[in-house]
Write a protein that binds this DNA or RNA. Structure first.
Lengths: 152, 152
DNA sequence: GGGCTTTTGACCTTCCCTGACCTATTATAG
DNA sequence: CTATAATAGGTCAGGGAAGGTCAAAAGCCC
């Protein structure tokens, strides 16, 4: 559909990232290339290259200034998954729900993903006697979080 | 046999779908073409291109906004969930993966959701003896699909 | 007339893009 | 060394361009 300016710039930056795994650019230069206001670049960064979408940006002002965009893995989720796995202990329904809710609130999971997980981990669904039920829940949750952290 | 405006617009969109399997349109443009209120387009979408009838619509607002309608030949999520539940029988891993993949391909699930489900439903994760394992997988999948269908 | 579907219009939310102004960093003149 | 100029990025409010919602009016068919 009709490519907006923001979309075009997004692609440009994504292409750079594809090439080198990191995109260095100068705001005014890119703005001139696309014949737009420099702040448009900030708009693209703010709406498309957010931490929530797995990017971090660093920049420097003044002479020789630049903007650098890099893909950031999502360390939180793998770390959480590892913690769950290591503990080797089970996870109660309420505990799981709290973890999922926190991940949702901080943007690591979408609202829909959070809802799916919460529903799936309900005791009536797992339907096992108690020591095993919580263990299964822990495994499922760990796998889900790990899986969610793989790319986007 | 009176052809209402809504019917005409429905045919128009169906024709577009026939051509390319996907219909992209701009609301105001189509409204002008049929000399009607823009919200009339929404009415047609809401009454004729519903998930129940096998369509998904996505849209973007603001400059460069558009509406996209795609046919998803795949069974609707709640229906699938109900089928899984009713059958009362288990679901093998390969079967589950295929279902999830189809849902992903037709846009009912995001790529990430599909990956999460596939991973969660792996036999090593469920880790139960065989009649129960497939039954648990069926329950999990049904709940997940149902949950995913609950709004966006 | 009663109950359905269709159609419209007023109002809302979201997204794009810019311009004016601000802050940080470096270069340079005195 | 310090003050100032030059350079570069950051922020924010606001206007315009879409699409979304909802209730009320208008048709239509018993």
């Amino acid at each position: 559909m009709s490519l907006t300016l923001a979309d075009a710039i997004e692609r440009h930056i994504l292409a750079l990232l594809q090439e080198c795994g990191q995109a260095d650019l100068q705001r005014v230069v890119l703005a001139r290339q696309y014949d737009c206001a420099p702040s448009q670049i900030n708009y693209v960064l703010a709406t498309r290259f957010t931490p929530e979408r797995g990017f971090v940006t660093v920049s420097r002002r003044g002479g020789g200034g630049y903007i650098r965009i890099v893909r950031s893995g999502q360390p939180e989720l793998p770390r959480l998954a590892a913690a769950l796995r290591q503990s080797g202990t089970g996870v109660a329904q309420a505990e799981a729900a709290a973890i999922v809710a926190r991940c949702g609130a901080s943007g690591w999971l979408t609202e829909r993903e959070a809802r799916m997980l919460t529903d799936m981990l309900h005791r009536d669904v797992l339907d096992l006697p108690l020591p095993q039920r919580d263990l299964l829940r822990a495994r499922l949750l760990a796998v889900a979080l790990l899986s969610a952290s793989q790319g986007r």
